[in-house]
């Protein structure tokens, strides 16, 4: 079980309100990602759920019980920290055993769970090493192992992959997703990386300045971002935004169009522009195109083998089905 509900939760540090009152429900077994730029309050929100910080107002319910006043140890949650927070003076085995030792779980049961976790996480050969002798990815797995053995109501991950290099990150992303499928336990995952959010989440919570901007599945957010912030944050490369007369043609203050939703043609199109810098990724190519009358150049996706060069004139046509319209208050227009 791992049903978590926040009701009117609010957090102030001194006079500064970092999280204005918010409500959020996390279903049992869900993989929820809190995503947002740094300083948006996502880690604070996670720490409020963990009990490492007090809420200023409101309640935190875990499985229907009010846990607002419970210390972290009593909430039945496990957390994987950004720095992994392994105990450097203990072997991997003792690190993993620590939460069970605190919970006074019998020795044989501890052994069983340790070997099971070590098997799942490929740590069997490293059980007697110290964290200092492990690579970043291995440390990450130990931290996860320490969380698993408690059989918690929910796992909390605080930017767990940000200290790993790019290749390892992709691998660990898959491992964590797989773990979630196998355990089917609630996971709350904090990241500033929208790619992690998109690839792993059942449900994404986009935060900015402590406020929930939108909650939804990755595709919902991609297809129908509720405001400019979400539109700009979700999707890579970023959505193009155009203001002014071009937007007015569509009865909007701002229109947004993703790079992948613009057709490129050498002969004709709605907009005409000059090709600027291009990035060849092999499968795709991204161009910066300066369009007459637009304040900012557009980013446009084309095929990998497209034959366009710096300074060429091209024609662009937005895919109108995929055009996003926003009003002056940055809110999505239906």
């Amino acid at each position: 079980m791992g049903h978590i509900q926040l009701k009117g939760v609010e957090k102030c540090f001194g006079d500064v309100m970092v999280i204005p009152p918010l409500d959020l429900e996390i279903e049992d077994g869900e993989f929820v990602v809190f995503v947002g730029p740094s300083g948006c309050g996502k880690s604070t929100l996670l720490r409020l759920i963990a009990g490492l910080e007090d809420v200023t107002e409101g309640t935190v319910e875990i499985d229907g019980h009010d846990a607002t006043e419970l210390p972290p140890a009593k909430r039945g949650l496990a957390m994987v920290f950004q720095s992994y927070a392994l105990y450097p003076h203990m072997s991997v085995r003792r690190n993993i055993a620590f939460p069970m030792k605190m919970a006074r779980i019998p020795q044989e049961e501890q052994e069983r769970r340790i070997s099971e976790a070590a098997r799942v996480l490929n740590l069997t050969d490293y059980l007697d090493r110290r964290p200092g002798q492990l690579s970043g990815g291995q440390r990450q797995r130990v931290a996860i192992g320490r969380a698993i053995v408690r059989e918690p109501a929910a796992f909390l991950f605080d930017e767990p992959l940000s200290n790993l290099d790019a290749a390892l990150r992709v691998g660990m992303r898959l491992e964590i997703s797989e773990l979630h499928k196998r355990l089917a336990t609630t996971m709350i995952y904090v990241t500033h990386d929208q790619v992690e959010a998109m690839t792993m989440a059942d449900k994404i919570v986009v935060l900015q300045a402590g406020v929930i901007e939108q909650v939804g599945s990755p595709l919902e957010l991609y297809r129908a971002p509720q405001n400019l912030f979400v539109a700009g944050f979700i999707g890579s490369p970023k959505m193009n935004f155009v203001d002014g007369t071009e937007a007015a043609k569509h009865n909007a203050h701002t229109i947004g169009i993703r790079p992948e939703h613009i057709d490129v043609s050498a002969e004709s199109g709605e907009w005409t522009g000059i090709v600027g810098v291009s990035e060849h990724l092999g499968s795709d190519t991204y161009f910066r195109v300066s369009v007459d009358g637009f304040a900012e150049p557009l980013t446009v996706r084309a095929g990998g083998e497209v034959d366009l060069h710096y300074g060429d004139t091209i024609h662009l046509t937005p895919n109108l089905d995929q055009l996003h319209r926003f009003d002056a208050a940055a809110t999505r227009l239906a």
Partner: peptide, 13 residues
């Protein structure tokens, strides 16, 4: 690092 002590707290210590 404070996180290590917090980890202990989360681990039920």
């Amino acid at each position: 690092p404070g996180e290590i002590l917090e980890a202990a707290r989360m681990d039920g210590a």
